[in-house]
């Protein structure tokens, strides 16, 4: 708790991080704005909230997926929180003042955990309220179905933030770390393309998808699959044009394990970096 307090003290007294953090949590509420989207255009009368996106238990899937997109915003805070410690040389001063390297890393990881918990709670509350208003089904049993999406959301965020932590410790400068994060997304995409193209020729037993699931960003993406094609409205259309499909949307234990393994690798890697480097 002492370590968490130290980190929160640092964040709380910085106006920029205060604005960014409250901005992030406010953005989470913006999902509620979706409920007000109404399109009335002649014969077309479209009311998004009534298309079933806020139906229990589907809402857990939809909201966790949508709100998780905002994590990129919070990544800026994480990266800045480390980058500033390097550029102000306060990391060095913290160590001189008697914080051990492991303790320093723990202040950051605890802060991440705290924000993931707050974020997850907010998603839970917002979904519960939105679902309460718009859902067609209100039986308790249905409401609390598929709550594992919240767990997946928390794990996905935690892993993503530890990735940011690791990158910013590796690169030290906030802007470059963010750029590298974007670049990494592209690298994963290119790697997947290359594997799809060549891998089956080289190792016939292995498909590109099998390897790709281990890539960190893709593994995080796999945790919560896109929810749109699950909507009954869209499935109806697909059925009508004869493209009916069934897809498994549930969260697999396997993908949770992969993502957790990455989190451990990122935190461990961060510790090694801190320990090995001279400041």
């Amino acid at each position: 708790m002492r370590l968490l307090k130290i980190e929160l003290y640092k964040l709380w007294h910085s106006r920029i991080s205060k604005v960014l953090i409250s901005g992030y949590f406010l953005l989470i509420f913006s999902i509620a704005i979706l409920s007000t989207i109404k399109v009335e255009f002649g014969p077309v009368n479209f009311y998004l909230a009534e298309q079933g996106i806020f139906n229990f238990p589907y809402i857990w899937h939809f909201n966790t997926f949508m709100i998780a997109l905002l994590k990129v915003f919070f990544a800026i805070i994480i990266v800045a929180m480390i980058g500033n410690e390097y550029s102000n040389k306060t990391l060095k001063q913290n160590l001189i003042d008697g914080l051990s390297k492991a303790e320093f890393l723990r202040t950051k990881v605890y802060a991440i955990i705290a924000f993931v918990i707050i974020s997850t709670l907010l998603v839970f509350i917002i979904s519960l309220v939105l679902g309460g208003i718009y859902s067609d089904y209100n039986e308790l049993q249905i409401i609390f179905m598929d709550l594992e999406f919240l767990l997946a959301y928390a794990i996905k965020l935690f892993c993503f933030f530890t990735f940011c932590l690791f990158l910013s410790l590796l690169i030290k400068r906030s802007a470059f770390a963010l750029a590298f994060l974007a670049l990494w997304q592209v690298i994963e995409g290119i790697a997947f393309g290359l594997m799809k193209w060549k891998l089956s020729d080289l190792i016939p037993q292995l498909s590109a998808e099998q390897v790709f699931q281990f890539f960190p960003l893709n593994a995080m993406g796999n945790l919560i699959k896109e929810p749109f094609s699950r909507l009954s409205a869209i499935q109806n259309i697909a059925d009508q044009i004869g493209e009916g499909f069934t897809k498994d949307y549930s969260i697999s234990l396997w993908s949770i394990l992969i993502v957790l393994a990455w989190s451990i690798i990122f935190i461990g890697g961060s510790y090694l970096l801190l320990n090995k480097r001279d400041l």
Binding site: H13, N88, K92, Q93
Partner: peptide, 11 residues
């Protein structure tokens, strides 16, 4: 105290 004073500039 090492060489340069290192503090959080915004505090």
């Amino acid at each position: 105290i090492i060489e340069r004073p290192n503090f959080y500039p915004y505090m």
